[in-house]
Simulated assay, not measured.
Amino acid sequence: MKRARRLSLIGIGPIGASIIKLAHNRKYQWIGAVDIDPQKRGKDLGQVAGLKRKLGVQVESSLERVLQQKPDLVIHSTVSSLEKAYPQIMECVHAGVDVISTTEELAYPYQRHNELAKRLDQQAKKNNVTVLGTGVNPGFLMDLLPLTLTGPCWEVRHLLVERRIDADLRRGPFQHKIGAGLSVVEFNQTISVGGGHVGLLESLYMVAAGLGITIDHIEESIEPMIAAAPFNGRLIAVDKGKVLGLRQSAQGYSNGHEIISLSFAAFLGLENPADRIVLDGEPTIEMVIPGGIPGDPATAAMAVNSIANVLAASAGLVTMKDLPVPRAMGSWADTEVGPYEI
């Protein structure tokens, strides 16, 4: 097993900042970071992340310079699109550095981006490194967690996963991503160019592969949730008739029968937010997480908690279903911040 303590980061947005804090608390050493924001360049990484101390690491504009410092592992936290993230990830691979990325389309890229996935796998093996895409969704809630719950089952006939988020409690970029405040026409235009939640299909295909199911076809839907009355939110006010958010779903069919159903609802003012998994099988299992798992801190935790598994993994492109279930190694008792303060 490779042993690494020296980390570098690509992307210091809200999730990247949380990754910095959590990894620092877990006694990893940050030796480099890169970001495209000119306001962050040249500043100390601890300051940019909101830590109470400096880390002695200057935020760079050049990934090449960061990789020259020979990190043991790079955590990549920038965009959802694999096509956009691919050049940065491949640059790390060619430098001989393991990569953990929060790029949603990397969570299970073999269906929608098979050629990119094959190239990443080939180059990772050639350079003896491991590449993993992870996060809370995709990467855990709608794929790894339900797969884990099938462990005591003799048979699984159907899987339902529902994620319900009150978007009023989330940060502004998330509200923007789900179309809050747009007109219906603007919402439809945004969806037509790839808007909405990214990762639903990646989760569906990962679950199917994990259960050995061949998916014949998939049905998808995305619809806006319209304000029946004016809504005054924490960050945004939405007029009657405008969009509060969205409801998105994907169903996977095998031999003419629906086998997997994933449902994602996120809009301002959603009541009774929760995450719910129902396995119809022998036995039938139902899990409900009241309030739901907070997305940003959980994604940061999935990245940091996966470091040990990536270091122990064989070279190549891997997914969460290929690795042991990540664990929160280490105690919060002697750290600066708790898990939901990051």
Rank of each mutant, 00 (worst) to 15 (best):
Q88G: 14
A313P: 01
I19E: 03
A266D: 05
A95V: 06
L270T: 09
E91V: 08
I215A: 09
I191V: 12
E219R: 15
P324Q: 01
R247L: 13
V161N: 06
L211M: 14
D143Y: 02
V34A: 02
W30C: 00
I218F: 00
S183P: 07
G151I: 13
T299G: 04
E186S: 12
G194A: 04
Q47V: 14
V318E: 12
G13R: 02
T190G: 13
H24E: 11
G194K: 00
L169R: 14
T319Q: 09
L132G: 03
Q69S: 14
K43M: 05
W30Y: 02
V48A: 00
E202A: 09
A308T: 12
I289G: 05
I19P: 04
L262I: 08
A17M: 08
S77R: 03
K43G: 05
N188S: 15
I226C: 10
I285E: 08
C92A: 15
D334N: 14
A300I: 07
S261A: 13
G179V: 09
I277Q: 05
W332F: 14
I89H: 05
I31F: 07
H217I: 10
I307K: 00
G179T: 04
L244T: 07
A274C: 13
V325P: 03
S306K: 07
K84P: 02
A85N: 05
E91I: 08
L244W: 01
S254K: 09
E219G: 02
D239Y: 10
V278H: 13
D72R: 04
D121S: 12
P138I: 00
L73N: 09
H176Q: 14
G179Y: 01
T284N: 13
E105C: 03
L106C: 03
Y108R: 12
G316I: 01
L67W: 03
G212I: 02
I260V: 09
H113F: 10
G151D: 14
P146M: 11
R3A: 15
I19N: 06
N309C: 08
V34M: 04
I213P: 05
S263V: 12
S77G: 00
H197M: 03
G194M: 03
V193E: 11
Q175R: 11
R65P: 13
F264N: 06
A298I: 02
S18V: 03
L73H: 03
P14F: 04
I19M: 02
H113K: 15
L159Q: 06
N188R: 15
L201F: 08
R164L: 14
L7F: 03
V136Q: 01
L9W: 01
L132I: 02
L160W: 09
